[in-house]
Amino acid sequence: MLAYIIKRLLFAIPILLGVNFITFALFFGVNTPDNMARAQLGAKQTTPEMIAAWKADRGYDKPLFYNQNAQGMNHVVDTLFVQESAKLFQFDFGRSDSGRQISADIQERMWPSLAIALPTFVIGLFTNIAVALLLVLFRASLLDRAAMVAAVILMSISGLFYIIAAQVLFGKMLHWVPISGYESGWSMWKFIILPVFIGVLAGVGSGVRWYRSIFLEEIHKDYVRSARAKGLSEIQVLFKHLLKNGMLPILTGVVVVIPTLFMGSLIMESFFGIPGLGSYTIDAIQSQDFSIVKAMVFLGSVLYIVGLILTDIAYSWFDPRVRLR
């Protein structure tokens, strides 16, 4: 097991290098360091001396991938790409273009993101499974069919609509919750309740359909019949057998998502003014702050790979037939 994890982690290195390469190529395709300097120093009367000083400050005066002026290995090593990548692999994200420590910012903004994403994920998972089980219980009835139509309709509505409509209805007209904002600690709940509700609602359509199809596949299997034959009630069958056996396919889809919950939701956070990593990323994209984007891409990739590894582990844990090598 441990050997397997280590092996997978080693495999992650070339992938992360590739990811870095893509981000660098894309970002410096857009922006020259001169541009970044000007954007940071402001539009009013920026002189070349100021720009040079700024670039030197950031290490952006080095060439991107190949240093002609260096010797030997330094052709490649003394470049922006290698220097910055090396730092990233030590999780040293450096400073943003405006001079703040990115690691400190990420640590701080991670929590609001989790405060939204985790409840949305957990409540969403439970709701979806519960509704799916209910529908399996009433399979092929009017309720089932109506619910399926409702699910497709829910799926077909743009997520933006949910957000805009809910904000107008619950925030502006009914005064139930603050329209936007965030507060840490106990008073947090009134800020997160609406985003969580919307998140669950927006996901319920596709979620229920997916879980329902998983359960329906299971319900025709022999063990379900024999369980029924033993005289178990339908509810017992559902919870004891169906849920347990449906867990495997559910896990493959779900575990990989868990680490990426840290990244937050781009749209939700910026609509509700929640200071999480999602809005951090959007701001960085819009202000073209390369240091932050690069850090977030790297972090996202790491979390994704962790998710893949976790999935494998969970798989072997639930299904003894699967062995990790």
Partner: peptide, 27 residues
């Protein structure tokens, strides 16, 4: 008796001015 206060309630009772900023000040 209101649910939608976006602040700490003690702040509402002191001489506090509430204002906003649209983008984080950089410097």
């Amino acid at each position: 008796g209101i649910w939608n206060i976006p602040y700490d309630s003690s702040e509402m009772e002191s001489k506090t001015l509430f204002s906003s900023f649209s983008s984080p000040p950089k410097h």
